[in-house]
């Protein structure tokens, strides 16, 4: 399988659909109006966006990201968290951590932001056909995985088991509670949630998410693992999959590095021989294994 096997098969993602930043001018943000701001957790919110000119947002593949530009403040890379099957609304789920994302948290319906993209590689939903699919998400890492889950549910018959293992800090940090309940309740997906610290009336799992990998119901010889979360969590998750006998070729991770151009020009996101913005963010484990344990490159 070539190294760029996870590159999108969707036609030029920011496409002729109009409305959004054209790939002919990938550095030019297109104005999008906020339709709705929804709070997911105390520090995390989802923005529903529609192109200000009324056009359709470009098609995207699960795992891709956009550059969101808050005029006069700055630009940040944020994964698309919505349903690729309903592309008319563009959704991004963001955790407010610093200057841009905290300012973005204050935006409300009607406000306008700039959007460039979508960029980067995507989750291997095609490669996973006919196999068990195991998602491992930590914290905000569920947001970039959510479109892949939607995609798999939309084409459920093409996949064997679907398992979601999700870890957060506390019960109040759990994102997309409604969907988690719905996915688990349909018996279509095995959903396991764990928290590092139990609070309040929580009676579910307590412990690190990587421990769930050991006892979750999937076939290590015929599965694809998609992992997104803090880097240290992803490393231990990979170890657990390898221990269960999952081939490194079948493990995929989404990496984060600071970004500027997002199109492979500026070198800001360089990671070893890769530019995370165009060779990633989704990488096959085999291709980055040698970089994961290096603390400074």
């Amino acid at each position: 399988m070539p190294r760029n096997a996870t590159k999108p098969e969707v036609s030029s993602p920011a496409s002729a659909d109009g409305g959004a930043a054209s790939m002919a001018e990938p550095m030019l943000p297109a104005p999008y109006r906020i339709q709705r701001q929804r709070r997911e957790a105390h520090d995390t919110f989802t923005l529903d966006l529609a192109a200000a000119d009324g056009g359709r947002p470009p098609r995207f593949a699960p795992g891709q990201f956009n550059m969101l530009y808050l005029f006069g403040v700055g630009e940040v890379a944020i994964s698309i968290s919505g349903n690729p099957g309903t592309p008319e609304t563009l959704q991004h789920t963001t955790r407010a951590v610093g200057s841009v994302t905290k300012a973005m948290e204050k935006l409300r319906a009607g406000d306008v932001i700039g959007v460039r993209g979508p960029f980067g590689t995507h989750w291997p939903t095609d490669h996973a056909r006919g196999k068990d699919v195991v998602f491992v998400a930590g914290g905000i890492g569920l947001a970039p995985l959510r479109p892949a889950m939607y995609e798999i549910l939309r084409n459920r018959a093409h996949y064997n088991k679907a398992v979601l293992l999700y870890g957060t800090r506390t019960p109040s940090d759990i994102l997309f509670k409604r969907e988690l309940k719905q996915w688990g309740g349909n018996f279509d997906v095995d959903v396991y949630v764990t928290v590092d610290r139990a609070t309040g009336t929580w009676r579910g799992n307590v412990g690190v998410v990587t421990q769930l990998i050991r006892r979750s119901p999937f076939d290590p010889g015929n599965c694809v693992a998609m992992i997104c979360g803090p880097e240290v969590m992803m490393k231990y998750a990979v170890d657990e999959f390898r221990r269960r006998g999952v081939d490194s070729q079948d493990i995929f991770l989404s990496m984060e590095r600071n970004m500027k151009c997002a199109i492979g020009f500026c070198g800001h996101c360089q990671w070893g021989p890769n530019f995370v913005c165009k060779d990633g963010p989704v990488f096959r484990h085999t291709d980055i294994e040698h970089l994961l344990n290096v603390w400074e490159i």
Binding site: T168, D196, V208
Partner: peptide, 17 residues
């Protein structure tokens, strides 16, 4: 070993901003 590892991991508080 697994418990120790998990406890250290929890102490790291990896999801904290």
């Amino acid at each position: 070993g697994e418990r120790l590892h998990a406890a250290r991991f929890q102490l790291l508080d990896v999801y904290k901003n």
